[in-house]
Amino acid sequence: MPVTALVSAKSCGVTASALALTLASKRPSLLAECDPAGGTVRAGFFQGEVGAGYGLYHLAAAERTGSDALANAFASHLWPMDEAGHRKLLPGLTDPAQAAALERTWPALSEVLHVLADEAGYDVFIDAGRLALSSGQLHPALTPAPLLHRADLVLLVVRGTEQSLTLARHLIDPLATELAERGTGSEALGLLLIEDGPYRAHQVAEALKTPVVAALPLDASTAGYFTTGGQPPRGYGRSPLLRHARTATEQMEAASSRRRIQQQYPARPANPHLAGVLQRLSERGGPPRG
């Protein structure tokens, strides 16, 4: 299954989209909240239910001990998002000042995420937040650059508005160049369109010279629930956002599969330090939802 990173030029609904995709997937799924500016899911969707003792920051200390310790910490810091534990969250940072500690952790975390996707069949979604550039390249501290470099798909979340397209235009070329030079290829780059504004998918793709891989409808009530938590809106399970998100996950898998066939990707070499990560994940479903 693919590892898909979601990014934006400015606040375009990355987190709400990532939550929708994770919760709507027909397969086991994981949302890794890796925005260096700080995570919002624990305070928003979970309304503080997930304490600061869980999450991304704790992986940095573990990684300094070794890859095996990181795998153990990863399994211990996932939070179940449904009763069965098929959908999991790696909560993000509680303080943006913690981001600097993660620069050397991103590559090892990427390995673990790909083990989960390739060997356990998870849909993995990375909320990478707002892109930050430095001298035309991804900023090493303000973006989780290694996660984007190794992702199967990197989707820039845009809206069909003039403002959103204008902001995105300045990022498309640098991001495509970065993925070509340091990632899995510029073909990994695509768009996730939030259907807000006058421009349709074909117009957005033409304007940004980048394919629209999937689209999600503007569904204010469900997106608001993902942002602030509380009681789900009436008809939540059949909401337009979740229904279209299910389709979007299939479109992303198809796009990733086409890339693998076209590129004839070699199998990822096994990492002996991560051999037990799947067993640990199965043993540790995470804390029960209250």
Rank of each mutant, 00 (worst) to 15 (best):
S25P: 04
L19A: 04
E187W: 13
L90C: 08
A267I: 12
L193H: 08
Y225C: 06
H202Y: 12
S110Y: 08
K88P: 01
E206R: 10
L90M: 09
E187Y: 06
A176D: 05
L23W: 03
H202T: 15
G224N: 03
Y225I: 04
Q163V: 10
A101I: 07
Y265H: 15
A176E: 01
G38C: 03
G185M: 08
P96Y: 02
L216K: 03
G13R: 07
G286H: 11
M252F: 02
S135N: 15
Q263K: 11
R234M: 12
T222P: 04
E253H: 14
D152T: 01
E63Y: 03
A60C: 00
R258G: 08
T222E: 11
R104F: 12
S11G: 15
T184Y: 15
V124L: 06
G38L: 05
Q163I: 13
D118I: 06
V158A: 05
R64L: 06
A255W: 05
T247P: 14
G190A: 02
G235K: 03
E119P: 05
S25V: 09
L133K: 08
S11P: 10
L131N: 05
A108V: 10
A176G: 08
A145D: 06
S257R: 15
A141R: 14
G290H: 12
S164I: 07
R289T: 08
F74M: 10
R87C: 08
L138G: 06
R87M: 08
L6W: 03
S29Q: 08
V3L: 05
C12A: 14
A61K: 13
L153F: 09
G85N: 07
P2Y: 11
D68A: 03
A37C: 06
R130G: 01
G230M: 02
T4H: 02
G197T: 02
V213Q: 12
T210L: 11
E178D: 10
R259C: 04
A223C: 11
P287G: 12
P36N: 08
A214G: 09
E181R: 14
L142F: 12
